[in-house]
Write a protein that binds this DNA or RNA. Structure first.
Length: 433
RNA sequence: GGAGAGAUGGCCGAGCGGUCUAAGGCGCACGCCUGGAAAGCGUGUAUACGUGAAUAGCGUAUCGCGGGUUCGAAUCCCGCUCUCUCCGCCA
């Protein structure tokens, strides 16, 4: 959510910057709501002040034993108008809130302006894609060759866009997650957290998934009890949601910043909009694991933190010796809540392309304002924190990258040296006989 | 699933229709005192919104959340959520 003060004071420049996403800010609608709000709020407060005065005077008179019937007759006079205005004010404020919840974040000045992924700007590359004598196979073929990756079984059990892994491949998947957690906790100073995978609507609103992107989520209805409409829960699309919401409605002491959390969790995405894309393999699934990095930090240090966090995610790719590049997302390709995003794209020989494996973003106060997540600043006053997060990394896609980059001519897969300690020393996965 | 208790400021805790502008304590900040400190004493100590040049005043809202009664609600009534205790069930 954007700062309402900013919209009141300088809506045109906000609109101009949002237009680069592209998003059309309805400045007229905002100003109309604001104007009415001011008027109604002013009058409401006037009537409330009058009511309070009367109540006070009646109390004082009664205490002295005076007759209060005349006062009481006068006191109730404005109440009907007040009740109407209070209702009106409430609905105006709800309307204003709804309006603000639907406005995306303003891109940072350093974000390149552009319309599509083609306008993203490459920042750096690391590693060199390996040469193959024969055409490189993709992970689906490799998985079939080793006999450990089954899509048809997953379809039978659940449906499209699920995968089932077996044996050493399942272990490799687990090894990847363990490896990432160990690096981030031991070397990068993150605190490991275990969190709920089902969260309430307030948490989804806090990080920006709701109200706009309900269709992308899996919702779990709950039976209503007597007279209560039980709140439904949502499966998390990323650990970002529960982890960032740790600080919702909290005031963090200055000296505890930055908070750095790492969390391994499954992620569930309905992905309604992306059907037809990446239908082959496990690139785009309804369920996947991810190791997520989250930082809650001081507003003055958030861009520094974004660089560091991105570097932490890169470390994993370097240790796994996977070629990748870093791109700055352009205004048109950034997510709703982000002010700036770096994507890490890993080289996939099966596709001869760099594909997203991590997305690292600074949300500035966008999520913090929705969550009322604050810290006590140098002056002792509560101030909104900046929130950041990034995948460190997507486990399923990392497995895909390992399979494709470490494929052997005999149909098997080498285990990257960094993962061997997590595989009981196993150095390669042999093809099925 | 059943029975009961509770939710008040940064924390503890009183208040159970009107001077609540929320007692008292703890903590914190500043001042006095002191060679320095402790103790003691004094003063201050929430958030949001509106109106202001203002981090000044003034106004409004907020005692878990929502609704109701009333001229007036932390206080009374109804609903909900959460926490705790006991029983049952369960990993």
């Amino acid at each position: 959510m954007l700062d309402p003060q900013l919209l009141r004071s300088d809506i045109e420049s906000v609109a101009r910057r949002l237009a680069t996403r592209p998003f059309t800010l309805d400045t007229g609608a905002f100003q109309a709501i604001e104007q009415e709000r001011k008027q109604v709020q002013g009058r409401t407060q006037e009537l409330q002040a009058a009511r309070n005065q009367f109540a006070k005077r009646i109390g004082q008179a009664k205490a002295k034993g005076e007759d209060v019937s005349a006062l009481m007759a006068k006191a109730g006079r404005g109440n009907e108008e007040l009740a109407t205005l209070e209702k009106r004010l409430e609905s105006i404020q709800t309307g204003l809130q709804d309006f603000l919840l639907g406005v995306p974040n303003v891109p940072h000045e350093s974000v390149p302006v552009g319309a599509s992924p083609a306008d993203n700007v490459e920042v750096r590359r690391a590693g060199t894609p390996r040469r193959f004598d024969a055409p490189a196979r993709d992970h689906v073929d490799i998985g079939a060759a080793i006999g450990m990756l089954e899509f048809d079984t997953a379809v039978k059990i659940s449906g499209a866009r699920f995968a089932l892994m077996k044996g050493p491949l399942a272990r490799l998947h687990r090894a990847i997650a363990q490896f990432m957690l160990d690096v981030h906790t031991a070397e990068h100073g993150y605190t490991e957290v275990y969190v709920p995978y089902l969260v309430n609507a307030a948490s989804m609103r806090g990080t920006g998934q709701l109200p706009k992107f309900e269709a992308d989520l899996f919702a779990v209805p709950r039976e209503a009890g007597e007279g209560n409409a039980a709140e439904k829960l949502y499966l998390i699309p990323t650990a970002e949601v529960p982890v960032t919401n740790i600080v919702r409605e909290e005031i963090v002491p200055l000296e505890r910043l930055p908070l750095k959390f790492v969390c391994h969790s499954p992620c569930f995405r309905s992905e309604a909009g992306s059907y037809g894309k990446d239908t082959r393999g496990m690139i785009r699934q309804h369920q996947f694991d991810k190791v997520e990095l989250v930082q809650i930090c001081h507003p003055q240090r958030s861009y520094e933190a974004l660089e560091q966090l991105t570097g932490h995610a890169e470390t994993i790719l370097k240790r796994l010796e996977l070629p990748y590049r870093v791109v700055t997302l352009c205004t048109g390709d950034m997510g709703f809540s982000a002010a700036k995003t770096y994507d890490l794209e890993v080289w996939l020989p099966g596709q001869s392309a760099y594909r997203e494996i991590s997305s690292c973003s600074n949300f500035e106060t966008f999520q913090a304002r929705r969550m009322q997540a604050r810290f006590r600043n140098e002056k002792g006053k509560p101030e909104l924190v900046h929130t950041l997060n990034g995948s460190g990394l997507a486990v399923g896609r990392t497995l895909v990258a390992v399979m494709e980059n470490y494929q052997r001519s005999d149909g098997g897969v080498d285990v990257p040296p960094a993962l061997r300690p997590y595989m009981g020393g196993v150095e390669f996965i042999a093809p099925a006989r």
